[in-house]
């Protein structure tokens, strides 16, 4: 199985005037096989969003190598952008457009057109419970509904890699459960999902592989049973292990 993501010795430092540079990433290396759901976990300021921003070509690494779907993010960022879809933490719904127009516009940016695009938009709106609000503008909807639009857009197109940064923020438990099932289905079809979350039950339920980072360094890596086995406590949850690892790293 080929790797959808390949990261080697990735470093990123942010320079600040009159202060020492902040080392956000200190030589991170990992790979994600195609069709896996990969969880990037860590406390606030661990470097999760920085890693995601490098992989999605929003910022450049200070050094190291990163490939997404076989394309180097530094050498060919435009090709990378055609192969990914990103759900960011901030609301990125087009607030002046209706729910339907949000999906139709996004689909067109990814080369979908005509009856096929309309059919897929209708299906996705149905799956995300947005059909009744299809003609309402995003600005008239609550934060949770705007989040639905963002994740719905990611599911509308067929890019090989999906990045989800805190995807479930503001979602009700019913929708969250159905989105998680949708993500599993997409992974079964060969789509690679990379997600960050602070809700570790979500990661435990979804992820095939997990990488826990802190202060830009790898703390633990493996599938859920492997990570859980790091705890001295029998039957520890992922959250218990996470807290133990962070306490150990701080010591």
């Amino acid at each position: 199985m080929s790797d959808a993501l390949l990261v080697q010795d990735l470093k990123k430092s942010f320079r600040r005037r009159g202060a020492p540079p902040v080392e956000a990433l200190q030589g991170l290396s990992f790979s994600v096989p195609t069709g896996h759901i990969f969880g990037l976990l860590g406390p606030n300021g661990a470097g999760k969003t920085t890693t995601l921003r490098i992989l999605t070509t929003l910022i450049r690494a200070t050094s190291g190598k990163a490939e997404v779907a076989g394309v180097d993010v530094d050498r060919d960022p435009l090709s990378v952008r055609k192969r990914i879809v990103v759900v960011v933490q901030e609301s990125a719904a087009e607030i002046f457009l209706t729910v339907r127009d949000n999906l139709l516009t996004f689909g067109r940016f990814h080369g979908l057109r005509g009856p096929e695009l309309r059919r897929r938009s209708d299906d996705i709106m149905e799956q995300f419970g947005l059909t009744q609000d299809a003609s309402r503008k995003a600005m008239d909807l609550s934060g949770g509904f705007r989040r639905r639009i963002q994740v719905a857009k990611a599911m509308l197109v067929n890019t090989p890699v999906v990045f989800l940064d805190e995807f479930s923020t503001g979602m009700d438990p019913i929708l969250k459960r159905s989105v998680m099932e949708l993500l599993r289905e997409q992974a079964r079809q060969g789509r690679t999902i990379v997600l960050t979350t602070q809700i570790l039950q979500e990661a435990e339920a979804l992820c095939d592989d997990i990488l826990i980072i802190n202060r830009g360094r790898e703390i633990a890596r493996g599938d859920v049973p492997t990570i859980k086995a790091l705890s001295a406590t029998h039957n520890a949850s992922l959250e218990d292990v996470f807290v133990e690892l962070m306490a150990g790293d701080a010591a």
């Binding site: 002046f96 457009l97 209706t98 127009d101 139709l104 516009t105 067109r108 940016f109 080369g111």
Partner: peptide
């Protein structure tokens, strides 16, 4: 051209549904 067409579609839909853009 896909991007340009999508951008034009977006701008047209914005103006079709929001008078303030005019």
């Amino acid at each position: 051209m896909t991007g340009l067409g999508a951008m034009l579609y977006r701008e047209a839909r914005l103006r079709a549904t929001n008078a303030t853009f005019i």
